[in-house]
């Protein structure tokens, strides 16, 4: 009983957090639309996506059939979804010219690039810390599910890079219009993040479906 009440309170806290993020997203979107600033419109839309992600995560990580609790790998997939959404918000904004020329943008870019590069290490650590005592961290089913997500990520990344290369050749002015090298760098990191996001979403969906 007490556990259920605690769970309800937690669920409400997530809903309130998502509502706050959605409200902020609406405000940013409205300002962006009124002032004609593309990066603000993008930021507002991303905040909405993050709010939707928060609600979905709360729903998806509830116990399933036979009290099937989410595994550490499933939680890690949701962690990566959140990280990718936040990174797309920041780096996508940078590619569109947000924080142009500021020292903070270089710091943010470096921080996110390091997070992306170091994610496999963070993931391993997260799984180790979240598993039960003596429980195996991951097994063959986890690897099979992950392989499906990785395959989708790889295909998407290939397609995105081909698309980027085609744009570069056919419409070089679009790339040259990006004022700073940092904008180009952020644009190059975006396909990696979007591919990661979609792959992890597939992993999370497969885990969720297995527990229903």
């Amino acid at each position: 009983m007490e556990q259920a009440m605690k769970g309800d309170r937690r669920a409400w806290a997530w809903v309130l957090a998502a509502a706050a993020v959605a409200l902020l997203g609406t405000a940013v979107l409205a300002i962006g639309a009124m002032e004609g600033r593309v990066h603000l419109v993008f930021g507002g839309a991303m905040l909405w996506l993050i709010a939707a992600g928060v609600v979905l995560q709360d729903r998806a990580l509830r116990p399933g059939r036979e009290d099937g609790m989410p595994s550490a790998s499933e939680k890690a997939a949701w962690g990566q979804i959140g990280m990718a959404l936040a990174a797309i918000l920041v780096l996508g904004g940078m590619a569109l010219g947000s924080m142009a020329g500021s020292f903070a943008s270089y710091l943010m870019f470096t921080a996110y690039a390091l997070i992306v590069a170091g994610y496999p290490m963070f993931r391993r650590r997260f799984i180790e810390e979240n598993r039960r005592y003596r429980e195996v961290p991951e097994d063959e089913r986890d690897r099979a599910i992950r392989a499906q997500g990785d395959y989708l990520s790889k295909r998407l990344l290939e397609l995105a890079l081909v698309a980027l290369a085609v744009v570069w050749v056919l419409a070089p002015r679009m790339i040259q219009a990006l004022g700073e090298p940092l904008q180009v760098a952020a644009l190059l990191l975006l396909p990696v993040l979007v591919a990661n996001l979609v792959g992890e979403a597939r992993v999370a969906l497969l885990y969720w479906r297995d527990r229903q």
Partner: peptide
């Protein structure tokens, strides 16, 4: 040496 989630998936015929 597998997770409980794998046993649940096996019993449900999902894996």
């Amino acid at each position: 040496k597998v997770t409980r989630q794998t046993i649940i998936a096996l019993e449900a015929g999902r894996y």
